[in-house]
């Protein structure tokens, strides 16, 4: 499968990365080169193979239902949450107005 500029433009839009026309032009052969190369995986017979889920055998641990047991994973720290915000007002993050 190979991509054209329209496809790359669509992918870039999905990924929310603005690309100029000239960037698009440059990306098409690059991406096609990489895609053609990874497509050699198609030749591997994986008929009875399960996709990998856990690289090292391990089970999913669950956390107890406790609020703010650890400040690193709990809430109640608005200052830390907003500390790096480009725009924060009245305890909120600010973004350009959204019309729904």
């Amino acid at each position: 499968m190979s991509v054209d500029t329209a496809t790359v433009a669509k992918i870039a839009s999905l990924a929310r990365i603005k690309v100029s026309e000239s960037e698009l032009e440059a990306m098409v052969p690059e991406l096609n080169g990489i895609l053609a190369w990874v497509e050699q995986l198609g030749e591997v017979d994986t008929a009875n193979v399960e996709p990998m889920t856990a690289v090292i055998p391990n089970t999913l641990r669950l956390r107890d239902d406790v609020v703010d047991a650890d400040p690193l994973t709990g809430g109640g720290r608005r200052d830390a949450v907003l500390a790096n915000a480009p725009v924060a007002e009245h305890g909120f993050f600010g973004v350009p107005k959204v019309i729904e």
């Binding site: 499968m1 995986l41 996709p51 990998m52």
Partner: peptide
């Protein structure tokens, strides 16, 4: 494209492992 690329890659990853 998900199955052709990603799922296949995770299967090959199983084989590599």
């Amino acid at each position: 494209f998900y199955d052709a690329y990603y799922t296949q890659a995770q299967k090959v990853r199983t084989l590599i492992s």
